[in-house]
Structures are given as C-alpha cells and as structure tokens.
Design a protein around this nucleic acid. Structure first.
Lengths: 223, 223
DNA sequence: CCTACCGATCGGTAGG
DNA sequence: CCTACCGATCGGTAGG
C-alpha cells in the first residue's frame, strides 16, 4: 500500500489520497506523475491501434484513464506530443529487447522470428504498428517522417544480417541481400494484417512459422 | 457535346444545363445521375485512401465534387453505403482485369506481377487498399468482414496457382502451397506500405521487381 | 488535476 | 440537388 509497485496499466485503482498534507517523501508527487504518464501512454497506444491516430480522441483516452481531457493535456501539451511519446517509448522498448541481442547473420534472423513470436502475445503493439504505418503513408501525417526513417533503418539492418549470412555461406546462391531485405520486411508487415484480421478464427495466421518458412527459402539450411 | 463520353473523373466541368424544359431523350437525367455517382465514387476512393474511412468526411468529398453534403447523401444514403459502393466497384474493376485472365500456374503468377506493375500507375487504388485493410482490422469497422473474406479468397486463389505450378513441375521441392500462399499475399501488401512511403524518393521500392524476385525463390526457373 | 468554454466539424434530417 | 438546422464531438484554452 505504501510503495507504488503496480504496473502502469493498472495504476488507476490505487486508493491513494490526493494530497496527504506534509507528505513523507518529496519524490511522491513525481512518482505519481510518472505512473500517470505511463498509464496515459498505454491507453493512447491501445486507442491509436484500435482506430488510428486521427480518429482517436483525447477525451476517450482521458476517460479510460479516469481523468478529464484537459487533465491529459497537462501531461502531454498536444495530441501530436502524445503520439511522439507513444512512438518514442515503442522504440525504447524494442531497442531494449532487440538492440541488446545484436546477433550476427542467421542468428539475427532467428532472433527476428523470436520477436515476431513474442508479438503474438502483444496484440496492442502489432495493432499500433500496423494501423499507424498505413495511416502515416499520407505525406502530411505527423508520423510520416518517423515511419519513413524507420523503414530505411529496418531494411538496412536486415540487409546487413543477410550479407553476414552470405559471408558465412548460409545464403542461397543468387539471393541478393539488397533485393530481399525489403521483401523480408514486407512479409513481416503483411503477415500482421492477416493475423489481426483472423486472429480469433479457428486457424489464425501463424506469423512466426510463416516468417521462418520464408527465411528458409533464402538460406542453405533451415533456421 | 450531345453525347456523354467524358470519363467519370472529369465529368464535373460539362456545361450541361440543369433542366432543359421538355428535354429530348428521357435517359438524360439518369445518365447525368450515373456520371455524378461515378464522380462521387472516384472522389470518395481518393479521400478514403488519403485519410481512411473514419477520418474522411462527407462534406469534404461533396465539396471536391462541387455539391453540398446533403446532395451527396441523395446518391448514397449513409456514409457506410458510400463505403460499400466504393468497395463493390473496386471488386468489379479487379474482376474485369484479373478474372478474365484466369491463367494457370506460373502464368497466373506472371499475371500477378503485371497487376502489381499496373498498380504503380494507380496510386489511388493502392492507398485505398493499404489504408482500409489496416483500418478494417478493428472488429467493429464496417469493412471488417469485407477484408476478412477477401483475404480468404485471395489466399485460396494463390494457393491454387501454386498447386498448379507444382503439378507442372515449376515449384521448388519443399515449397508447400498452403504455407507460401499467405506469404506471397503478405509480400504484396507489405511492399505497398514501403512504396507508398518512399514513392517520391530518388529510389522508390520497385514493387513488381520485388514480387518477381520473391516468386522466383519459389520456382524452379525464373518467371 | 478540475469546470467551463471556444470555434470548428461531424453524420444525418427537415423541408422544399 | 439546395439551405438550414439538429445533437454530438473534436483539440485546445482560460482560469483556477
């Protein structure tokens, strides 16, 4: 009860008083603010993934957090600032999960399959990425530059992994890394749409299995 | 001037009088209505592709057609009815273009590459498909069932083409049509996102070339 | 963090 | 096809 250890997404129901006159530790207020920020980011990510950035309303996000929409604007001054924070946190999380690995060649490809497998347990992440990447296709979208840049670096990372695989003799003859890097990215993105559409069906798209099958067509021996 | 032969998308500027008292042919009024309908569908397709269905407004579509938004609602009673008409026409056009071909095995795959090549000249079609398919991922979206069904039949068609290729000895050993059909669909969808994002860059994604390269990894001899 | 408000915009209807 | 209007909702601000 005294320590704040609940996850951001469930931090709403804690029965803490609003202003305990002459509180014990001065960090309390900031800690509570950070918690609220995280809760808002979780909620915003979910709604952006459900209906896209443009159709998501600050009022709906705020209501899901149990605050007013001017209350939300106290933490994030504009809707675009909220979007930026959501995308920045997304990058931080994926770097934490992927950047640490930093494997070489086929090992990196194997890690990629693992990441896709983990995404199945995080449909919110997949929705956000899928819906926002398509929406940001419009040149005037606030996330247009973000996704443009992101695809450049994602393709470059994959191209490097494929080149390393070639050096190690793991790549089939005639497979050009610069040609097939964007294709592997396309496979991952395209599978997400199909999976989001049929994930509740009796036979949903098996994203990690399909990605592995695709990568195996490029390699001399299966992953 | 007497005959109505301009394309739907440019039918706006014809200087026809609104009501030529005691007009010559009775079909005139209907012909004009059909023209206006087509113009509305073209415009709606464009705006749905630019900002998605939810964020598109009837007022903006109507304004681009030079009419009021109740005027638009005279032709399509609700926003959902307009969306349905846009999707139905899309199907009619692609059937006309693809259904007639009805090629077998690798010939069908070659035709697929041709369709993707043609899409580069029709960015409006690509935008519509890309943005709406992602948006319709939400279960309550009015086009959710449409896209769910569409992917089922698209995968089935592709699986059949791959099976035929296998029968003809054109498929590499170990390539399972039921596994790779959804992957080919994913490649096409994923390439569209990348192309829409970088189509104005110095080196845009070459969708038909990439699709051909992908299909060639599945076949015993290149397309 | 709140209430109260701003001007703008939404899909759809009334009535002609 | 039009004008005029409905109730609802939008992002953001004022002022506390």
């Amino acid at each position: 009860m005294a320590s704040v250890s609940s996850t951001p997404s469930t931090g709403q129901a804690t029965g803490q008083v609003t202003r305990p006159a002459t509180s014990g530790e001065p960090l309390r207020g900031y800690a509570k603010g950070r918690l609220r920020r995280e809760e808002i980011l979780d909620t915003a990510r979910a709604l952006f993934g459900e209906v896209g950035y443009r159709s998501a309303s600050l009022r709906e996000i705020a209501a899901r957090c149990g605050i007013s929409h001017p209350g939300l604007l106290h933490h994030f001054p504009t809707k675009e600032a909220l979007l930026e924070a959501v995308l920045q946190r997304r990058d931080a999380v994926s770097e934490e999960r992927f950047g640490v690995i930093r494997a070489r060649g086929t090992e990196a490809l194997r890690a990629l399959v693992e990441i896709v497998a983990a995404n199945v347990a995080e449909p919110g992440e997949v929705e956000l990425y899928c819906v926002l990447s398509a929406e940001s296709t419009a040149p005037d979208h606030p996330a247009h530059q973000y996704f443009t840049d992101r695809y450049v670096t994602t393709r470059a990372n994959l191209e490097r992994s494929l080149r390393e695989a070639a050096e190690d003799g793991d790549l089939r003859a005639g497979v050009d890394p610069s040609v097939h890097a964007p294709i592997v990215v396309a496979v991952m993105d395209g599978l997400q749409v199909q999976w989001l559409l049929d994930r509740d069906s009796p036979a949903p798209t098996d994203m990690p299995a399909a990605l592995r099958a695709h990568l195996n067509t490029l390699l001399t021996h299966p992953l």
